[in-house]
Structure formats: structure tokens, C-alpha cells
């Protein structure tokens, strides 16, 4: 269908509605004819495909409808209701049993104001392995005890292992390697009460709680329970309590009563930097 420029023009006028054209004209005002890299308007930001403000995004999804022309139209309408203009179903596949898979592109023509965004972030300065150990020596003056655990029924220790284990992850040593830390990895499926018992026994300064399984928000319940129990025991103020996991954000962690939350891509120095500075800040040294 799309054989050359001329045919392309025909194709274009055939499929693009009047409304689409109008919207495009409005939205590309700032970019047509530009000769250099126009800086984006940060109060009106849209996804970037290959031209500023084209709004291009890709989505893929499955619909519980039998494959066919109706299914493709359904996919187009789904994208349309997402707010995507000129959605194009580029790929569809019959999954059988009355299910179909789609890859769709479309243009997101609304915009967001980047200048008004405020995100809760861990404020601590990131230090490296040596700086952290030096910081502890100079500012705290004793070894810091950190317990790590993957709590509740969660059996996925990969996250807490990446932070705690001697060998570490992604080129960063784990906390067990830090000479100024006493780091204990309690492993997986640790009950909140056991974690607290260990915290008392080992006189911990900080608790790192990893949650990987988040189906049906089981992690929220579990994390909230830990804070409740720590408060009931009168321990909350004496400890730095940190949550981590692929679906943990700093904002979520704060909401649940934690001191910080770390998401994907976190390595040991991120966590340790925060913990030691928080200990200093709160006068827990």
C-alpha cells in the first residue's frame, strides 16, 4: 500500500481524519520549519518519537477477543481510549482460545508540566565503599549493625542478597564486605516478629526489608505490619528502617512509615550511604 511518496500522500489523506489534521497542526506549531534543535517547552512535555512533540508511544497488550478485523478495531479503540491519537495496530497475533495480541503505536497529544513535578527522593549524598567506611569511623565512631531480610512469605532473596552478600552486585561489594558494618543477611521468609527479635538480640541500627512478591499488595500489608510492631515495641525511633524491591519507591516507603525506599537498580552503596547519614542525622550514633 505504501509504495512511494506519492502513494504515501494518498494513503495519508485517506486515513487521517480532519480532526487529526487539526490537532497535528496545533501541536506541531513550534517545530515545523525549525532549523536547529529547538529546546522543548518543559511546561508542555510530550513523548518524543523522531520529532519534538510528535507524542509517539508504543503499547502492547492482549485482548480477550477472537482474532480478526473486529479484534484489530477493538485494539485501535483501546488505544484511542488511552488518549492516543491516530493509533495504528502494527502487529496482531491469534493466541487461540479467543485471545489476541497487539502491538500498537499512537500519539499522545496531551502534555505534562515538567516544571511542576516534585518527587520524594532519598536526599542522602551517595558515597562509595571507602567513603562510607570512613564516614562511619569519623562520624559514628563504632561499627554499624544492619540486618537484611526478605520478610513474610516472600521467598525471593535475590534482592536482599544483591545488597547484603559479600560479593555484591553490579560491580559493588555487598554490605557484608564493609569493614565498618556488621551486616547480617537473615535470608528469605523471615517473619516480622523474628526480624524484630533479631534486631533486639543484635542491637541493630538499621533494618533492610526486601519485598519482591507484590501480588495482591501482599507487600504493603507486610511492610505496614512491621512498622506497627516496631512502634508497639518502642523500637521504631531507635532504628533506621528501609524498604527495597522492584516495586518499592521512596514515596511508598515514606507513606508506610519507613525512612527510605529503594527501587530497581539500587546497589549496596546507595543503601549504606543513606543509612549512615540517617544515623548521624537522627543522633542515633
Amino acid at each position: 500500500m505504501h509504495k512511494g511518496c506519492d502513494n504515501g500522500r494518498a494513503f495519508y489523506s485517506q486515513y487521517v481524519s480532519q480532526q487529526d489534521i487539526q490537532e497535528q497542526e496545533e501541536d506541531t506549531m513550534g517545530t515545523t520549519g525549525r532549523t536547529g534543535a529547538t529546546p522543548p517547552n518543559l511546561t508542555q512535555v510530550r513523548p518524543y518519537g523522531d520529532t519534538l512533540d510528535d507524542g509517539q508511544v508504543q503499547v502492547s497488550f492482549t485482548l480477550p477477543v477472537p482474532h480478526g478485523e473486529e479484534a484489530k478495531e477493538a485494539a485501535r479503540q483501546v488505544a484511542s481510549k488511552m488518549g492516543l491519537k491516530k493509533p495504528r495496530v502494527y502487529h496482531s497475533h491469534d493466541l487461540g482460545e479467543g485471545y489476541s495480541f497487539f502491538i500498537v503505536y499512537g500519539a499522545f497529544k496531551k502534555s505534562i508540566d515538567f516544571t511542576s513535578i516534585k518527587v520524594a527522593k532519598v536526599e542522602a549524598e551517595r558515597m562509595d565503599f571507602y567513603e562510607i567506611n570512613d564516614y562511619i569511623r569519623q562520624e559514628i565512631g563504632r561499627k554499624v549493625t544492619i540486618l537484611g531480610a526478605c520478610t513474610g512469605t516472600d521467598a525471593h532473596s535475590v534482592g536482599i542478597d544483591a545488597i547484603m552478600n559479600m560479593k555484591g552486585y553490579a560491580g559493588e561489594y555487598g554490605l557484608e564486605r564493609y569493614p565498618m558494618l556488621k551486616a547480617y543477611n537473615l535470608g528469605m521468609q523471615v517473619l516480622n516478629e523474628d526480624l524484630i527479635a533479631h534486631a533486639i538480640e543484635k542491637n541493630a541500627d538499621a533494618l533492610l526489608v526486601s519485598q519482591v512478591v507484590t501480588q495482591k499488595d501482599v507487600h504493603i500489608k507486610n511492610l505496614a505490619e512491621l512498622i506497627d510492631m516496631l512502634e508497639a515495641e518502642g523500637l521504631r525511633q531507635k532504628l533506621v528502617v528501609v524498604a527495597g524491591g522492584p516495586r518499592i519507591s521512596h514515596k511508598l516507603a515514606l507513606e508506610l512509615g519507613f525512612d527510605a525506599g529503594f527501587g530497581p537498580g539500587t546497589t549496596a552503596p546507595d543503601v549504606a550511604s543513606f543509612v549512615v547519614q540517617e544515623i548521624k542525622k537522627r543522633g542515633l550514633a
Binding site: L95, G96, E97, Y99, T153, D154, A155, Q189, V218
Partner: peptide, 25 residues
């Protein structure tokens, strides 16, 4: 079962039903 049947149609030979977290204990 629905997901498994779809997977079979897409070429799966073995379907493993992952157990709920914590069942092993």
C-alpha cells in the same frame, strides 16, 4: 487452565503451575 491452553497453542510442550509463595513451608 486458560493461560496454559493458550500457551499450548503457541507451542508450549510443558506447562508448569508455579506454587503460591510459602507453600513449601
Amino acid at each position: 487452565v486458560v493461560q496454559a491452553q493458550v500457551a499450548a497453542r503457541q507451542g508450549a510442550d510443558i506447562i508448569a503451575v508455579i506454587r503460591t509463595t510459602g507453600q513449601s513451608l
